[in-house]
Computed example of a mutant assay.
Amino acid sequence: MGKPDQKKTDDAVSLHTNPGESSRAAYIDDDVLDIPQVDIDDLPPNYSESESLLPPLDVETATAAGGLLLSRKPFVENATTFEDPDTGAQYWMAKSLEDPVNLEKHIQYLAAIPPRPYIRLVGTHTETTRDSKGKMEKNTITDFDVSVELTPYLYSDAQYQRSWSCLRTVENSETARRGTILKKRAPGSNQSIELGGTPQPTLQEWCHRYSASHAGLKVFTLQRRICGFDAEGVKTKLRELVYSTNYRGHLNVQLVVKDSLIECYNESWINKWRLTKWIRMLFMVTLLFIFTWPYLWLRTKRWEVAISDWHFSRILDNGTKEYVSVSEDQWFNMWGRAIHKAVLRKRQGLLDQNDLARAQEPEPAFDSGNVAVNGAVNLFRAGISAMDEVNRQLGWGGDC
């Protein structure tokens, strides 16, 4: 997960930048011990803000980098769509998507939309209590649950959608569903093209194969991925940060990627039923899924061959790592103090740039013009600071 293969540029479609394009916002990780400080005012905008910055055009406009023509309107109209509120996965079903030309354009359009990666920290502890009957009960208490979105840092310039993203198809040597039920490699994948091996199919070819299939139930999948991000290194730093507060509970740090899955189904009453929420719940409650799940699994042909790679970093020819916006260390330096404060305040929710800015500023003085009110507020602040200090000294969040 990191170095884009320069030999695959013929099979991959660059969505926003050309290979080798330099960016004014790129950083080279030459010395991780000397990380430049990042100005709050120069931070990339939030994802929702970057969407609002796009020009409200109804016609197709090209990105400033000369990449894919991205329409501001959805390509498929009057399609039946479903979305998973937890994962952000999208499911499309339209007769027009069974045409290979329309399917290819639809996949290209959706591939130009980034995944939504989050760093999430959850701290819990177990609390043992006794109920009214004297029986011991164990309850899990959430101490904090904070998240930070990484989507803005997949852009070198979010306003003009400059990024290092590309749309590619699976390699012949990769295991994937290629119009099959089970994952497999392409026939002859152990042979090179020079020795008579089969060349890697393009997106256009895969769309034609999908459309030509006579399978009653079929689905074409697009996967959005984040590449070149050192998730394990960031997790380690965040664990050390939380434990530095003397937290004694159970800590879970994870990289959650939403909006990563797109599935386009052929028009069928079975597919419509399988994607309808109340029908799915009915089959779960009545345990009918025990019989329907094997049937759907055996009947559905899947094409999991399109991948949209969004590079957080890439390896140059000289072996150095280049970042599209900021490095992992720079990101940690920016967000470390805000996350530290949110953990001690036992926050739950998504941190934004307001939290980031407040963490860098001293606590503002409060003056209401009333001596009694000022004294009460200052006393309250002093109490919070004292509690934080006691927690750091004696520990907090342990099982009890």
Rank of each mutant, 00 (worst) to 15 (best):
296 L>R: 12
54 L>W: 08
315 I>H: 00
59 V>R: 06
137 E>A: 07
151 T>C: 01
187 P>T: 11
226 I>N: 01
379 L>S: 12
105 K>F: 11
347 R>M: 12
342 A>I: 07
257 V>L: 13
251 L>G: 01
288 L>M: 13
390 V>W: 13
217 L>F: 10
243 Y>N: 13
54 L>N: 13
108 Q>Y: 11
58 D>E: 10
365 A>K: 13
53 L>P: 05
338 A>Q: 11
227 C>K: 15
198 T>W: 03
198 T>L: 10
105 K>G: 13
340 H>T: 06
10 D>P: 01
266 N>I: 10
132 S>F: 12
125 H>W: 05
95 K>L: 10
350 L>S: 13
200 Q>K: 14
90 Q>H: 10
201 P>D: 03
227 C>L: 13
26 A>M: 06
262 I>R: 15
260 S>F: 10
400 C>R: 14
111 A>G: 04
126 T>F: 09
256 V>A: 04
389 E>Y: 03
122 V>E: 09
214 H>S: 12
368 S>G: 08
292 T>M: 10
288 L>Q: 08
300 T>M: 07
271 N>C: 07
127 E>S: 08
4 P>W: 07
282 L>P: 02
62 A>L: 08
358 R>S: 15
147 S>H: 02
53 L>Y: 13
264 C>R: 03
393 Q>V: 09
256 V>R: 07
142 T>M: 08
54 L>F: 07
360 Q>V: 07
120 R>S: 08
32 V>C: 04
266 N>P: 09
295 Y>D: 03
319 G>E: 00
376 A>S: 11
270 I>F: 10
50 S>P: 01
50 S>W: 05
334 M>S: 04
199 P>Q: 09
326 V>E: 00
173 S>E: 11
392 R>Q: 11
142 T>E: 12
304 E>Q: 14
140 T>M: 14
79 A>T: 02
155 Y>P: 00
54 L>K: 14
372 A>G: 02
242 V>M: 05
77 E>N: 11
193 I>G: 02
3 K>Q: 05
221 T>P: 02
84 D>P: 01
310 W>L: 04
154 L>R: 00
217 L>A: 06
232 E>D: 13
111 A>P: 04
232 E>K: 07
363 E>R: 11
400 C>N: 11
150 L>R: 03
43 L>S: 06
386 A>V: 02
75 F>R: 06
271 N>M: 11
390 V>C: 08
385 S>T: 11
154 L>D: 00
308 S>N: 11
222 L>E: 09
399 D>G: 02
191 Q>W: 05
82 F>E: 07
35 I>N: 05
62 A>K: 11
233 G>V: 03
288 L>K: 06
133 K>R: 12
245 T>I: 02
32 V>W: 06
85 P>T: 05
87 T>Q: 05
27 Y>E: 04
139 N>V: 14
279 I>M: 15
375 G>S: 15
167 L>K: 03
204 Q>S: 14
